[in-house]
């Protein structure tokens, strides 16, 4: 992956945004010293970047997130340090946005400054196995809704098509055609094809811009 100063991860609810954002932050940190991850999720109180807090600390990644994240206080709050994303241009930031247009509303608060600075990528995470984005037409709708709400345009696609723990390499390979069609229709590039790192050997040479990820287990051992 090549990174601009700001990388925005957005897309449909449950498409895998947080896992991608967390792994991108790990990746970015290996190239740029001053790396931060910003959690702007105002939709879901669960499965937040804060779940990886220990890893961020270990790796020296700054976490910008609401003090309510993972506190079980179900409040759609934004982090008070949110404006440092755009104000402090010395840092490199991965932004994890909440799902759908509702989630992208939060992004709208700072998208003006992001567009003005013009040093960003915004990736739409797609998963052809999610029931409400089965077709490219569905994706186009979601894309437009997010861009309207966030007042910013996507610059690329991350194909994160998967079936959870049951994902087989063929499932990812089979999804590439869908991702290609989506990319053509949206006139965007496929910035990455992301998958569980356990599938890396089988997929590394078979998908465009492979991006292997460490995934979190919901309930260890089950």
């Amino acid at each position: 992956m090549e990174y601009k100063r700001i990388t925005i991860i957005s897309g449909h609810y449950g498409s895998g945004k947080t896992n991608i954002a967390v792994n991108m932050a790990y990746d970015l940190k290996t190239r740029r010293e001053n790396t931060a991850i910003a959690d702007l999720d105002i939709v879901n109180p669960y499965f937040r970047t804060l779940d990886s807090w220990e890893d961020f600390k270990k790796r020296g990644i700054r976490l910008i997130c609401s003090s309510f994240a993972n506190s079980n206080v179900d409040a759609p709050a934004l982090p008070q340090e949110m404006y440092s994303i755009t104000d402090d241009r010395s840092q490199n930031v991965i932004i994890d946005v909440g799902g759908d247009d509702r989630g992208a509303l939060a992004l709208g608060r700072i998208s003006g400054a992001i567009v003005e600075e013009d040093n960003y990528d915004m990736y739409m995470v797609i998963n052809c196995y999610r029931p409400l984005t089965r077709t490219v037409e569905d994706l186009l709708t979601v894309k437009e809704e997010i861009e309207m709400a966030g007042r910013i345009r996507f610059t690329g696609i991350i194909n994160n098509s998967n079936l959870g723990k049951d994902t087989k390499p063929e499932d990812v390979i089979r999804s590439c055609e869908y991702a290609d069609t989506a990319a053509q229709r949206m006139n965007l590039k496929i910035a990455a094809t992301s998958y569980d790192k356990r599938l890396d050997k089988e997929l590394r040479n078979k998908v465009p811009n492979p991006f292997a990820m460490e995934l979190q287990e919901l309930i260890p051992g089950v």
Binding site: Y129, P131, D166
Partner: peptide
């Protein structure tokens, strides 16, 4: 929807 899809339990209830 005869193929496998990836869903949250809540979504599966709604679709069913």
């Amino acid at each position: 929807m005869s193929e496998k899809v990836l869903m949250k339990g809540n979504e599966a209830i709604a679709e069913a």
